[in-house]
Structures are given as structure tokens and as C-alpha cells.
């Protein structure tokens, strides 16, 4: 545990080297920390606050305000269901419900095995393919409940193959 804390501090220090000590660098720094670590650990936020000379609670405020930041580690695969206007009209909620049902998690949660995290996003800009789901960086269009099963099944199969190979 102590070792992990050390690693986090080191990563953050490395990132902070590229920035001047000014409050206006807060969001770019947090963004880079999250890109590196996948989320914003408490230790990282403390380190950033210390380096930029601002209260820790202000860093926490910004980290909890913006959609981009997450305070817990994400799943290995991120499923983002588009909730833009066109997707909503074409059944985005139905797709989201299906994922919740299949993965047995609520939106914003990660499956207990850490495989999938399920999120809502506002418009990914592929309205003509509505409803759209983004799995990791791959855009899936016209997602019906049957397609939801298909997407998850393809991951399961992929995993099984992986296991057989190992």
C-alpha cells in the first residue's frame, strides 16, 4: 500500500514538472494525472494541491464538479451509452436499461470483477447511427437489446479465448 502511494506521488511529480505553479494549471494537471492513472486518487489530489499552493478542498471541488474526472478506478472496459437527443429518441434508454440488466450494475458503477464500467454520455455526435454505444473507443451504432447481448457475448468469447491461450 505504501509502495502504491509512492508510485502515485512520483507520477504526479513527474507531470507537475511541466507546469508552472499557477492555479490556472489545475484542470490540465488533473487531466494529465487521470490519463496516467485512470482516475484521481486522494494522494494525487493532495500532491497537486500542495504543488499548486491551493487548498486540497479546492482541488476536490474541481475534481467532483466536472464529468471528466473520476475518483475511483474505472473498469477494464468502459461502456458509454449515448444519451444525446437523437439517441434518446431512438431508444438510448432502452439500451442503457439492457446494459444495467445484463451487467447487473447501475449507471456509473463498475462490475464487481472490474471488467466493465457503465456510463452515460451526452452526444458523441454520431446521431445518424442512433442509438449509439461506445465500448472503449469503438463506436457501435443501432444498439437494440439484442445487440447489447451480442456486444457482451463478444467480450465473453474474447475473454474465453484469451484464457485458453494462456
Amino acid at each position: 500500500m505504501e509502495g502504491k502511494k509512492e508510485t502515485i506521488s512520483n507520477y504526479v511529480c513527474e507531470i507537475l514538472k511541466n507546469y508552472s505553479v499557477e492555479r490556472r494549471n489545475l484542470l490540465p494537471v488533473l487531466r494529465e494525472v487521470q490519463e496516467k492513472l485512470g482516475y484521481l486518487p486522494v494522494r494525487a489530489m493532495e500532491k497537486v494541491a500542495e504543488a499548486l499552493g491551493i487548498p486540497t478542498v479546492d482541488v476536490y471541488g474541481a475534481a467532483t464538479f466536472f464529468n471528466l474526472f473520476r475518483l475511483s478506478p474505472p473498469g477494464k472496459h468502459q461502456i458509454k451509452v449515448c444519451m444525446g437527443t437523437a439517441c434518446f429518441m431512438a431508444g438510448g434508454q432502452i439500451a442503457l436499461d439492457s446494459f444495467e440488466r445484463r451487467l447487473d450494475v447501475r449507471t456509473g458503477e463498475t462490475t464487481p470483477d472490474g471488467e466493465f464500467s457503465l456510463e452515460e454520455v451526452a452526444c458523441v455526435g454520431c446521431c445518424s447511427l442512433a442509438p449509439v454505444v461506445v465500448v472503449d473507443d469503438f463506436v457501435e451504432g443501432n444498439v437494440t437489446p439484442t445487440r447489447v447481448d451480442g456486444i457482451l457475448l463478444s467480450w465473453d468469447i474474447g475473454k474465453k479465448k484469451q484464457r485458453e491461450q494462456d
Binding site: 491551493i54 487548498p55 486540497t56 478542498v57 479546492d58 476536490y60 471541488g61 467532483t64 464538479f65
Partner: peptide, 10 residues
């Protein structure tokens, strides 16, 4: 000048 409390979330 302490910085113990603040707003969070939105």
C-alpha cells in the same frame, strides 16, 4: 485563510 471547507460536486 485556512481552506478546510469548500463546495464540491455540482
Amino acid at each position: 485563510g485556512v481552506g478546510a471547507i469548500g463546495f464540491s460536486r455540482r
